[in-house]
Design a protein around this nucleic acid. Structure first.
Ligand SMILES: [Mn+2]
Ligand SMILES: [Mn+2]
Ligand SMILES: [Zn+2]
Ligand SMILES: [Zn+2]
Lengths: 148, 148
DNA sequence: AATATAATTTATAATGATTCTAAAGTAGTG
DNA sequence: CACTACTTTAGAATCATTATAAATTATATT
């Protein structure tokens, strides 16, 4: 029953994103729709840098999107909670289309990130607490390298 | 019996760092000795940025040390294993004089880091492993904010 | 102690990801 | 269509970091 539209016709993907943008208070411009399709119209979530997204746009789409708009859009999506930023590297920002709480493997050679499923990490227990502070998130990064 | 020198006289701190530098293959220049004293001649380890270290040098010492030398020295010390780099922020690099394996609280408002003692975190168990890869380190960052 | 050599420091320029600016373009509203 | 606020864009500005290359210094050698 999800993804219905008007007279029960299935919505086109584009319309889903138009809806999502509008309901977020973001005008559904062709740039934002195009970026939404690249980021969210997939079976699996993934991790990307601005540079990576820029290349995707150049390869997979006809419209030209300026770098400034890519930055603007990614930050808008992050602010709305559709993306998370991940800190693995000082040189570049990385983003994650998986916005749930989860942990990561990080290949230190390639900077490739791989999601850890929650069942793959035993619950983290912090036995200390800081007075006047509350825990906002707990993030684990497991750095890995080739084992030969 | 640690920290002895020649005829059993106690080494001066400076001499300790001269020794440490020389045994690391780094010439004991006055800049490196000065930075060593600021970073390592303390009761407790701490976290710092290049900017922070630069301010310390200006306030606490007479000699002038160029920014380039601060960068060079911090990177040399990191390479020798006397410092660790911590990624909490894309804007700046942060370093840690505690080079043991340990986890952190991070105050997301102030970017202040606080070490978690090993006994404060229940052992992290990763139940999945990546074929052909071995775990190099596991780092936990517990983000905290004011709880009012 | 003077000399030679390589390492180090330094001022300054270059880099590069990100942010800013302000002008042109576009979506929504009536 | 006309109006307004939002968005996109090219290009400039920012700023932490790194590179460059000349001057200085540490150390080994005579
Ligand atoms: Mn950001
Ligand atoms: Mn570095
Ligand atoms: Zn992820
Ligand atoms: Zn620490």
């Amino acid at each position: 029953m999800e993804n219905t539209y008007k007279l029960g016709k299935k919505m086109k993907n584009k319309d889903v994103f138009v809806e999502k943008l509008r309901s977020s208070g973001l005008r559904p411009t062709k740039q934002r729709i195009q970026i939404s399709e690249l980021l969210f119209d997939r079976k699996n979530t993934f991790h990307f840098s601005i540079d990576h997204l820029n290349n995707l746009l150049k390869k997979k789409t006809k419209i030209k999107v300026s770098l400034a708009t890519i930055y603007n859009t990614v930050h808008a999506f992050k602010k709305k909670g559709y993306l998370k930023e991940i800190l693995i590297n000082r040189e570049k920002s990385y983003f994650d289309t998986n916005t749930s709480d989860h942990h990561h493997f990080l290949n230190v050679k390639t900077n490739e990130l791989i999601d850890l499923k929650n069942e793959d990490v035993e619950k983290i227990k912090i036995k200390k607490n800081l007075p006047g502070k509350k825990i906002k998130s707990i993030e684990v990064i497991v750095k890995v390298e080739n084992s030969n």
